[in-house]
Design a protein around this nucleic acid. Structure first.
Length: 84
DNA sequence: TAGGCCATCTGGTCCT
DNA sequence: AGGACCAGATGGCCTA
């Protein structure tokens, strides 16, 4: 006697499978978009921390990261001097 | 118009 | 299993 009635591997209409895959992808895309937006928000917060002239063009992502790195380095050097 | 920047989609891998 | 993270691909927009 076979009893797959409770089998997890339900045989689904292939048309339905395609539909499920599509909706999963769309959902994943949506999450990915949200994730990238939050990354960009963090980058924006970092930008306002950095000292720039008001009429300067907005720093690009890579510029922001490099500048931040450089700025932190400069500040820590300053601290070293102060500590002397 | 070539090159840089960016947003988005996608499939693979890792993590919970 | 499903979500998070990641890197590559693609296409749009801008400007030197």
């Amino acid at each position: 006697k076979k009893r797959y009635s409770k089998s997890r591997a339900k045989v689904l209409n292939p048309e339905v499978v395609v539909k499920i895959k599509k909706t999963r992808r769309l959902k994943a895309n949506d999450r990915e978009r949200t994730r990238m937006h939050s990354l960009n928000d963090a980058l924006d917060e970092l930008r306002v921390t950095l000292p720039t002239f008001p009429d300067d063009a907005k720093l690009t992502k890579i510029e922001t990261l490099r500048f931040a790195n450089n700025y932190i380095w400069a500040l820590s050097e300053t601290m070293k001097v102060i500590d002397l």
